[in-house]
Write a protein that binds this DNA or RNA. Sequence first.
DNA 1: AACCTCACCTGCGGGC
DNA 2: TGCCCGCAGGTGAGGT
Length: 275
Amino acid sequence: MPELPEVETIKNDLTPQIVGRVFTDVKLSWPKAVRETAPDEFRSRLIGQTIVGLERRGKYLIFRLSGGEALILHLRMSGALLLRSPSDADGFVRTVFSLDNGQELRFSDVRKMGMIWLVKDVREVTDKLGPEPFDAAFTPQVMAQGLSKRSAPIKSVLMDQSFIAGLGNIYADEALFEAKIYPLKRAKELSHQDVKRLHKAIREVLDQAIAHRGTSISNYVDPAGQRGSNQYHLRLPRHEGSPCKVCNTPIQRLRLGGRSSYFCPRCQGNSELRR
DNA sequence: AACCTCACCTGCGGGC
DNA sequence: TGCCCGCAGGTGAGGT
């Protein structure tokens, strides 16, 4: 579910609350979420460690631990990370991390797709990720160079985490709408102007979403259980037939790799056809 | 290598 | 009302 802005919000909210805390217990009611490490070993290696820092890389949330290891979470489609008192009630809690101040960090995950790692080196998990969208090294020129080698639809490339880290279905659609680019346009066919607009649009769309604490279309919530508000500021309606906010043309939907892509046939018309 | 499809999970809402 | 189907913000495995 969460993309970069949602994970960034979670990281920002949790940092002042949990840095310095110690893991005192872990309960795994869906042990399959823990990758690469047996549940017993996971517990014994984690309990007693102090959280010394929190980071985000792409859609991964990274807890730096006093022993030099890192706890890494990925929320996938339906995950939420909640900071709660033991008496609070939450649904679909798959993992509970108890902290030394009596609070609980709860990994709630309806669809059980979320994943957890405990690693010595963060790169074991994040080494295939492409650049962060806000990294100074990720320039329009670098982006154009990468796109020039890709024949897949631009939407697919934007969702490819090894090309750029953090964009998912919603923000890829938003960026393409903002840049007025048809989602199925082949990446290598983008003009320099296209790439320039798209590069700018990616940062604008993500910046705005972070400012609004994420997009809660169905069930994203922050660590306090509160929804974000970016769903009220999306540029593109996520319903087929709804009017485009720019030109009133009915929004269309297409399927790409099993996902829905929404677009405005007028604002994002294939420039080859329009010419 | 790059690209595509499918599997992994569960719940919800729409159509019949 | 109840059932069936499609759909949901992601990724990695496996095939071409």
